[in-house]
Amino acid sequence: MKRYSLTLLIILLIHSNNYAQSTFEFGLLPSLNINKKLPKDWSLNFKTESRQSLIKEDFNYDYLLTDISLAASKKIGINTAIAMGYLMRIDDKGVKNRTIQQITFVKRYTNFSLSHRLLADQTFKKDDNTEVRFRYRVSSEIPLQGKSLDPKEFFIKLSNEYLNSLHERSYDMEIRGAAFIGYVISPTNKLEFGFDYRIDSFINGDPGNRLWIGLNFYTSI
């Protein structure tokens, strides 16, 4: 039964891939996060991330963009924080500006932590209409060597995000799924390595599939 189901699934996937004019891109997505705690539950988050394409139809290295962002966050409860930020995206075509508002709920369970993030962002670019997005992401961090995550221990991070985009009266949805393996270097430093898969344009067009190898470094100063 299991073999039959698996064969059917593979046939269906191959069949649907032959007819859909989907695109596929594979590349690198390294990022650096610097966090600074401030008094009265305020904190700052600086993030820079670069996107580098390795395969798009053929193997072809292409440095796509750099994102630089800064967000100010305020804890409004033991598990809840609100944040506002600004992101600058630099690519070959110029600079995009993005404003960000988010609320996060982080619950620490006995064996794992779970985070829900609701985020709205607005992207502005010269000679282009504003793109507005509403996003929801659920992420979990699961320690691999005990019930809590301690230094010198590994963990798994899983996340799933749904992005609703409105741009020039056109709606699109993007879905992201990521799986990372991480290591706690010290109480203030974490390193993660894994895959980040994204699909968009699947409602009214040809799906765009992108798979990124992520390498994230988080540090607190």
Binding site: N45, R108, S148, S159, N216, Y218
Partner: peptide, 10 residues
């Protein structure tokens, strides 16, 4: 001491 959770917040 609460563990840091920035990696599932941002």
């Amino acid at each position: 001491t609460l563990n840091r959770t920035e990696n599932i917040e941002y």
